[in-house]
Amino acid sequence: MPRMHAIELLPDADGCEAVRRDWQALHDAGLPSQLDHRGTTNSPHVTVVAAPALAAADEQRARELVASLLPVQVRAGAIGLLGGAKVSLVRLLDVPDGLVRAVLDLRSEVADVQHDGWLPHVTLARRMRRDDVPAALEVVGHDDVVMTVTELRRWDPEAGIVTTL
């Protein structure tokens, strides 16, 4: 499976710190955590679109539709599980309707989008065994966190380049 190109939303410093607290709590408990991902571009983010390739026109539309709405407040609240035998532990986000519409409009224009629809979330851990989920729920923060999404970036895994849009 090819590595996916992505357009991602980034929270401000306070939002990053809130997510990193969850990453650290999972790590300290000996559980999978995004803190364990050592890639130089690993940071708290919300994937807007992932596809095998993104064109310059996709970047421009992302600027027009999504970046033009920033900054915007979102609420990180409920915890969710994505996947099968092993799951990703995520914090689901409540986002303003205008941002949802803009993201769905963008996604409708991008070829070969990885998933239908959009489920805004921040990943806390990947490839977690299902029997580790109860322990993970005990250690991550249970309070809702309001954060401000301030930046849009594009990730090109083939070139290893992150570009602010």
Rank of each mutant, 00 (worst) to 15 (best):
L124K: 07
R101C: 01
D116S: 13
V122A: 09
D105H: 13
H121I: 08
R101D: 14
S108W: 07
R129Y: 04
L119T: 15
A111S: 14
E109V: 01
D112H: 15
H121D: 12
T123Y: 06
V122M: 15
A111D: 15
P120S: 11
A125S: 11
R107Y: 07
R107F: 06
R127W: 04
A102P: 02
W118M: 12
P120Y: 06
S108E: 06
R126M: 09
D112K: 13
D116V: 03
V100F: 01
G117Q: 10
V110E: 10
R101A: 07
M128P: 07
T123R: 05
S108M: 03
R129N: 09
A125Q: 07
E109K: 07
T123C: 09
H121T: 11
M128G: 01
A125N: 09
L124D: 08
D116M: 05
W118L: 13
R101F: 04
R129V: 00
V122D: 12
E109I: 00
Q114G: 00
V113Q: 06
S108Y: 08
R127E: 15
L124E: 07
A102F: 04
H115I: 04
D112C: 05
G117S: 11
M128C: 04
R127S: 14
R107V: 03
D112F: 09
R107A: 08
V100E: 12
Q114R: 14
G117K: 12
H121C: 12
L106G: 02
D116Y: 03
V110C: 05
D116L: 09
R127Q: 15
L119I: 10
A111M: 05
H115G: 00
R126T: 13
L124N: 05
R129T: 02
A111I: 00
R101S: 12
V103N: 06
S108A: 15
D105P: 00
E109D: 10
S108G: 12
G117T: 11
W118P: 05
V122E: 07
R107H: 07
V122P: 10
L124Y: 06
A102Q: 01
T123M: 05
V113E: 11
G117A: 11
R126F: 00
T123W: 04
L106T: 03
G117M: 13
R129L: 12
S108C: 02
P120C: 09
L104Y: 01
V100P: 00
D116C: 00
A102G: 02
A102H: 03
L119R: 15
R127P: 01
V103H: 03
M128D: 05
D116Q: 13
A125C: 09
H121P: 04
E109T: 15
V103R: 08
V122K: 05
R127G: 10
R126E: 13
L119Q: 12
L106M: 04
R127V: 01
A125E: 10
W118I: 11
R129H: 14
L106W: 01
H121A: 09
